[in-house]
């Protein structure tokens, strides 16, 4: 059984959206969970958050940034193409409850995974404030979607090309300074961003959850490759997480571990680029 691509969209120059036919997975998926896919027989298993699910049509939406071999190859697939393996839902779903005010902070590609979580908090009737940021306007994704579900949406760009000029943390700082009562912060994005948000919220003792993205293989707790240190204890992000109390996460270790295979990844991406160029010449 292969998994067919039913829709495709380009959200920015290197961010793509695919809707994949996987009815059982779609039926079971909850906010905060992810899938692992493998494109073909020689492919790597990579985890991606389910940005949206359509239970009736049996579709799972994935949104990904093309950063290396597998995500580039995935981005090159077209409607009608098939993905060989697609397994999920994996990970613990977000603990969603009605809260007074929740702030969802999404940075870069992190807006994709925060979207379903923000939606879930919105559906529970919480006051939802969202801050989404990107390096520059061109890279901003899901603004419209986030706007629809948020009571208030703030957009930031590092270069000031759109919205607030600055980092998401500066926006968050402003909201805190304004004296807003905040029950919880949910932050997803690059590790340095999550780390910065946690540093800020810790000083105000604001409960902050983050979704971690260590390197994974099986996603079922079998390999231990995804281990992260949380509160001094080793946890497997794929089964114990991916969400954890951000104030307890050892981000430095996570960042280092994410770089474990950097040399090999570069080699693999280079090889793929060359093969693509060769193909396009033919």
């Amino acid at each position: 059984m292969a998994y067919k691509i039913m829709e495709k969209e380009e959200l920015s120059s290197d961010v793509k959206l695919l809707k994949v036919k996987a009815p059982l997975v779609a039926k079971k998926a909850l906010a905060g969970q992810f899938i692992i896919l493998r494109i073909d027989e020689s492919g790597e298993r990579i985890p991606l958050t389910m940005a949206q699910t359509d239970k009736e049509q049996g579709l799972v939406t994935i949104i990904f940034q093309e950063v290396g071999k597998t995500t580039n190859q995935l981005g090159a697939l077209e409607i009608g193409d098939e993905i060989l393996d697609f397994v999920g839902p994996l990970g613990k779903p977000t603990h969603v409850e009605h809260l007074g005010t929740v702030i969802c902070v999404g940075g870069g590609i992190g807006v994709a995974p925060i979207y379903p979580i923000a939606s879930a908090f919105h559906k529970k009737g919480s006051n939802l404030i969202s801050i989404i940021g990107a390096r520059t306007k061109k890279l901003l994704i899901l603004e419209k979607e986030m706007k629809e579900i948020s009571d208030q949406l703030y957009v930031t760009t590092d270069d000031g090309s759109y919205g607030f000029h600055g980092f998401v943390t500066e926006m968050l700082q402003k909201l805190i300074d304004d004296g807003l009562t905040i029950d919880m912060v949910m932050a997803i994005g690059p590790v340095p961003m999550m780390q910065a948000v946690c540093k800020l919220t810790k000083s105000y003792n604001l409960k902050t959850m983050v979704s971690l993205n260590p390197i994974m293989i099986d996603g079922t707790g079998m390999c231990g490759g995804c281990r992260v240190s949380v509160g001094g204890k080793t946890q497997f992000a794929c089964v114990d997480g991916p969400e954890f109390d951000g104030h307890l996460v050892d981000f430095v270790e996570l960042r280092k571990r994410q770089g474990t295979f950097r040399n090999q990844e570069n080699k693999s991406t280079k090889k793929y680029d060359q093969e693509c160029r060769l193909k396009s010449k033919l």
Binding site: S42, G43, R45, G224, G259, K271
Partner: peptide
């Protein structure tokens, strides 16, 4: 970095065929 569980190490190599990297994608 450089510490694997045997499960991870062997899964990379056997299931994912990392010994054939980069022809197989898993390093």
């Amino acid at each position: 970095i450089g510490v694997y569980s045997a499960n991870e190490f062997l899964t990379r190599v056997n299931l994912m065929k990392a010994y054939l990297f980069p022809d197989h994608d898993t390093p």
